[in-house]
Design a protein around this nucleic acid. Sequence first.
RNA 1: GCGGGAGUGGCGGAACUGGCAAACGCGCAGGACUUAGGAUCCUGUGUCGCAAGACUUCCGGGUUCGAGUCCCGGCUCCCGCACCA
Length: 835
Amino acid sequence: MMERATAAEAEDLYDATALEKKWQARWEKNGTNTTDVARGSRPYYTLMMFPYPSAEGLHVGNLFAFTGNDIHGRFMRMQGYTVFEPFGFDAFGIHSENYALKVGEHPVTLIPKNIDNFRRQVKAAGLMIDWRYELSTTDPKYYKWTQWVFLQLLKRGLAYKKKAAVNWCPNDKTVLANEQVIAGECERCGAKVEQRSLEQWFFRITDYAGRLLENLGTLDWSESTKTAQRNWLGRSDGAEISFRVVDFLEIAGGATVRADTGEMSAMETDITVFTTRADTIFGATYLVLAPEHPLVKRVATDDERARVEEYVARTASRDLVARKVTKDKTGVFTGAFAMNPATGEPIPVWIADYVLMEYGTGAIMAVPGHDSRDFEFANAMGLPIVRVVAAPNDNEGTPLKEPFEDSDDPARLVNSGRFNGMTVSKANQEVVAWLEDHERGRAVVNFRLHDWCISRQRYWGPPIPIIYCDKCGPVPVPEKDLPVELPRVADFKPDDSGISPLARVESWYRVACPTCGAQARRETDVSDTFLDSSWYFLRYPSTQLQNAAFDPALTAKWLPVNSYIGGNEHAVLHLLYSRFITMVLHDAGLVPFDEPFKKFRAHGHIIKDGAKMSKTHGNVVIPDTIIENWGADSFRTYLMFLGPYEEGGDYQDRGIAGVRRFLDRLWSSVVEASSDGKPDADVIRKLHKTIRKVTDDVPKLNYNTAIAAMMEYLNAVRTGERQANRAEVEPLVQLVAPFAPHIAEELWERLGHKNSVFDSNWPSFDTKLAADDIITVAVQVNGKTRGTIQLAPDASQDDAMTAAMAQEGIAKFISGKPARVIFVRGRMLNIVLGA
RNA sequence: GCGGGAGUGGCGGAACUGGCAAACGCGCAGGACUUAGGAUCCUGUGUCGCAAGACUUCCGGGUUCGAGUCCCGGCUCCCGCACCA
């Protein structure tokens, strides 16, 4: 053992653990990772989505995300930018609170411990963080300004309170935003979400729907993220059409007669529907109202009232899971009829839960011939189905066996009076124009997006800064009184009442009205965690500022964020809310830009044993032991090597050994490199190619191929027992530095440099030096590769032919005169023989 | 159902605007050095074949001198959204 240690010392082996400790301490001491936010020139703000500090600690997925960002930041720094790479914690929210409840410890003491653990892990991973700018959303110095953001929205009429049907999670006992309900289940715990009617605070994000959509076109973001936002915003261009409700009198034999032509009077009620297919109005054979529609009570006839009320009651308690797509359509007839303005015919008015109150007008005109849901319903209820659109070969007379939903070119209108023969798109415009002329409709743009419900009936969040006064109504807490601190209470467990745990703390919620001084009561709900994270990027450069949320000069200098990296699971949550809040602050004149992130890249996910690495799948790998065994440098590099960064990769425990071997070889090559003598010309050529490749790949986040190129280069440097020359390996140390910062620093120092490798200039490449003087060209005969030839890069076709024919292995395939020869300079030669 | 992405050796993955498919790494096999090797270093490694050679990028067609890459048709998997009118 002793002998071995001595041998190791003598051989000067790479000791990752010792060396990483050494450099982390050195960086801290020298302030290597600090950013002079006030004076630094060429600012570059590179941001990673801040984590929720779970008790389990940082997992490999987090580290994968952070490392990708860190490499980008370190690379930009070596390009001469002043890079700002801050870190923080998204520590409020249900997740933290539930965990605290589970282990029976108060989050006030639990969260700081988790944060300490995370910080330790992040430091061990060697991220280039300036810790002076760390923030936590749970810090009153931070959430003071979260509350301030709320007040800015309130001031601008963008925050309002209403009683609304909201998503209620019976397990977490709180309201959820639409974005947090996944297929009818709670995003956090998977419980079936219920509908409840509660008084909630909302943000009018729908006012910004159009702008949120339009601006997407200007953003340099992962396409998949933009698409997800587009789908979520869900713009549909359509029309609202009014159907006049008419009374019917039953006469003998069950037939009905219109009452307004003498025998009856029309009800002065319109049912307004939203449709994207106004062209099919002649095929609208009935109307459907959502069960919650306010007109249901009004239009239901006495005969049908009991059945209608029973149906409404039954569907009101439905949970959202029941609303999953199903062919089993249910509904009841209201007894009422409405006039189809196009046909002049009365059509029955039904209610059914396949129509949603939240979308459009909560009412539809049903066109069973051309909509599959209406078709199913009409079949179930025995309602008439009329064809009004047909393909050229369709027989207009035969009944439709299935809905015909084509709206593309060959389809044309039939059975639609003056619109017959028009294409769907043409008819759509014409019908809307006709309805507008007759004041029965108008063109309307609808968005799927709903207003953002931010109230949470939980404890662990920033209290919403409102005070209710009997005389003055809801009064905003004056800015000077912020923050409204979250009181420390022992019993923070939520209950079924729909009222926050804070409502049990009388000493806290009883306050004087800021306006009139009368006894008043605080809002006892807290705000959604996503409000915390919707502006944190604005805070980072200004974390040391106490009297404002952010400093105007620093904000103008550092924002918008130059590069943002995070998971695509936030495509419609965090990323949409952040854009919205930024737009609002921009409109309020508080920030000079209306988009927070110029560039966003969604990273992929780590797969292990065929599933995404997550606690749910039970396949989580904890970085700590891997870092202990292999070193952070190996781990970082391995994570980046296992696949394209934007696609993620498959994690295999044994794979890290290859990367570690690479760093071992790098170590000995540099340590043993000779500083005199000439570098090898071929190696230098390869070096310049490698610099070019890595310089090209890193900004594109093509980390896996950059690493492969460096490995390939090192293999060329170390063929056999060859000793490397210093000039061959010194630039490689710089190329490796963003990936494996500790070993790079150590080697850089051993090469005699006094400065940090991160303060060195990224190596440049010489295109001439990177060029080959002899290239290998493939030779094909009739398109099949038969051999290769060595040529000068500028060799002519004749030179190539001569070289090819000189090779027996190629020449033997050629008989007679070639019919055709294709020569692509520097690539290949194809000799095509006659047919 | 709609939208997005992807199918390449035993495995993870390379391949620029169509131009030597399988770079790089893992694994595996053989060898060297060794008391030893789970260290290190060398060599080999798509499939079939002794070889010459033939075949090979999910399947089937097509365009082209030439297709993993382009076009048409189909299959499979992953990720969003999901009765959005």
